[in-house]
Computed example of a mutant assay.
Amino acid sequence: MIRFPRAAKLALPLALAALAAPSLSQLPSTPPGALDKSRVTAGNYTVDATHSMIAWRVNHLGFNDYFGLFGQLGGAMAFDPANPAATKLTATIPVSKVVTVDAALTAHLTKPGADGAKPDFFGPAMPDAVFVSTKVTPGADGTNATVEGNLTLNGVTKPATFSAQFTGAGTNFFNKAATIGFHGQSTIKRSDFGLGFFAPLVADEVKLDITIAFEKK
């Protein structure tokens, strides 16, 4: 049996990856996505988990807001640009994987409750939050919409609404997938979902800033 040196074993996957990726000379001179509705095609899309996330902000003790991030989103969208009101959307948010810029704050958000009590916030094993749309109302210019639906978080389901803005469409040159991007905003109350610990000292209202991309199957 032929044995390769360890360095060669490590180099081989990198070389294969380099062959698969486009070289600098092959990259387009302009971004593949653009704010152009004519580039949007009808079909079934899934979330690009690597480039989709939700930032949240909440006021702390009346002094200032602090921020956190949910990544690794999942979900799907059925979309037809000829009938955007018929859009169907689902999204999953792994809240137990929340991150912040401070290790102690992240640990507090995800630590289990003491002596079997419920956690102060998300805890280490909270199920993913799930949003399912029930109504999409397109704006007059066709680049924004109001999305209504049901958000299930911490075992509680409540109506939720967010505004969505179309931000770009085109074909991703890396994976050749037709892609649509959106930004969104919403505000929810922690207490609606049984997560109102320390409110109102830590504000009950949480502002959400969503950036999400969908890739056509």
Results as ranks from 00 to 15, higher is better:
F4P: 04
P5F: 09
A7E: 12
K9M: 14
A11L: 13
A11T: 07
L12I: 04
L12E: 03
P13Q: 08
P13C: 08
L16H: 11
A17C: 10
A18T: 13
A21I: 11
A21G: 13
P22C: 12
L24Y: 11
P28H: 09
P31I: 05
A34M: 12
D36S: 15
R39K: 07
V40P: 14
T41Y: 01
A42T: 13
T46E: 07
T46M: 07
D48A: 06
T50H: 07
H51M: 15
M53Y: 05
A55D: 04
L61C: 11
G62H: 01
N64S: 06
Y66D: 04
L69S: 01
L69G: 02
F70G: 06
G71V: 02
G74Q: 09
G75F: 09
M77W: 08
F79R: 05
D80Y: 08
P81M: 00
A85I: 04
A85V: 05
A86Y: 03
T87E: 01
K88F: 00
L89F: 07
L89M: 13
T90Q: 13
A91Y: 01
T92H: 08
I93P: 10
I93W: 07
P94V: 02
P94Y: 01
V99T: 14
V101P: 05
D102Q: 12
A103D: 15
A103P: 04
H108E: 01
H108I: 00
A114N: 07
A114D: 14
D115C: 09
D115F: 12
G116P: 07
G116A: 10
F122E: 08
G123D: 09
P124T: 03
M126N: 06
F131L: 12
F131M: 10
S133T: 05
T134K: 11
T137L: 10
G142T: 05
T143M: 07
G149L: 10
T152L: 12
L153M: 14
N154Q: 03
F162R: 04
S163M: 08
T167P: 00
G168A: 09
G168F: 04
A169I: 13
G170R: 12
K176T: 02
A178H: 15
I180Y: 12
I180T: 11
F182N: 05
F182S: 09
Q185N: 15
S186N: 15
I188K: 02
K189W: 06
K189Y: 12
R190M: 00
D192S: 00
A199L: 03
A199F: 04
P200I: 10
V202K: 00
V202I: 11
A203C: 07
L208V: 02
L208Y: 02
T211H: 13
E215R: 09
